[in-house]
Amino acid sequence: MSADRIDKLLQDIRLLNEDHYALVQALREQILKLDKGVTEEVKYGGLLFSVNKPFCGVFSYAKHVTLEFGLGASLPDKYKMLEGEGKYRRHIKLTSQQDIEDKHVHAYLLLAMKAAQQA
């Protein structure tokens, strides 16, 4: 995906909310470090991350940032952080960078990436 589109989306987020921008950047850094094959693209108004198949997305809303998992309903939820009641999707709402650690984001990212690779 075009780096220009990613940069434009990030600039827009930064203009609207500096804290959300910092949170999105912290999430991006963690996601992109998971595997050298992780790619990102602008889709559905946010950033979609894939390793051959999509496994998560990061979206900035007015009051929070969400980390969304397309196959989230099938993920083990050991820490009881996943929200949503749809057939497939689940998400984690984040309001601060501390939430990344407090809500065990890394563990969920690994589970989601593995699930997408096996699907």
Rank of each mutant, 00 (worst) to 15 (best):
L71K: 11
G86L: 05
L71Y: 09
V65N: 01
M81L: 12
E68K: 10
C56M: 05
V38Y: 03
F55Q: 00
R89W: 09
E68C: 09
R89V: 12
T66C: 14
L15M: 07
S50R: 05
A62W: 09
Q25S: 14
V24Q: 01
Y44S: 11
F69L: 03
G84I: 05
G46N: 05
N17V: 04
G72F: 00
K63D: 05
L27D: 00
S96A: 07
V38R: 01
K53E: 15
M81G: 11
H64E: 08
K33F: 10
D19S: 13
D35T: 05
E85W: 06
D19R: 14
K36L: 14
E18G: 10
K80V: 07
Q25N: 11
I13W: 00
D99N: 00
Y61I: 08
L15W: 14
V65L: 01
E68P: 08
Y21W: 02
K80L: 11
L16A: 14
K80H: 11
K80T: 09
E85H: 04
G86K: 01
L47C: 02
E85Q: 09
G57S: 09
F59Y: 08
Q25P: 13
K63G: 10
Y88T: 14
V38P: 03
L47D: 13
K93S: 08
K53M: 10
F69S: 00
G37E: 04
M81D: 15
T95V: 08
T66E: 09
D77K: 00
E29C: 12
G46D: 06
F55G: 03
L32G: 11
N17M: 07
K93Q: 15
A22Y: 07
Q30E: 13
Y21T: 08
I31D: 01
N17L: 10
F55M: 11
P76R: 02
C56D: 03
L75Y: 01
A26H: 00
E40D: 08
Y21G: 06
R89Y: 04
H91A: 13
T39L: 04
F59D: 08
Q97N: 12
H91P: 04
A26N: 02
G72M: 00
S50A: 08
G45M: 08
D99Q: 01
Y79H: 12
K87N: 12
Q25C: 15
H20K: 03
V42Y: 10
I31H: 03
Q97R: 10
F49E: 02
Q98V: 09
G57D: 06
L27F: 00
D77Y: 02
N52A: 15
F59G: 03
L71G: 08
S60V: 05
I31F: 02
K33P: 06
L16K: 11
T39V: 04
M81V: 11
V42S: 05
E41K: 11
Q97H: 14
E83V: 05
T95P: 04
Q98G: 07
Y21M: 02
T95C: 06
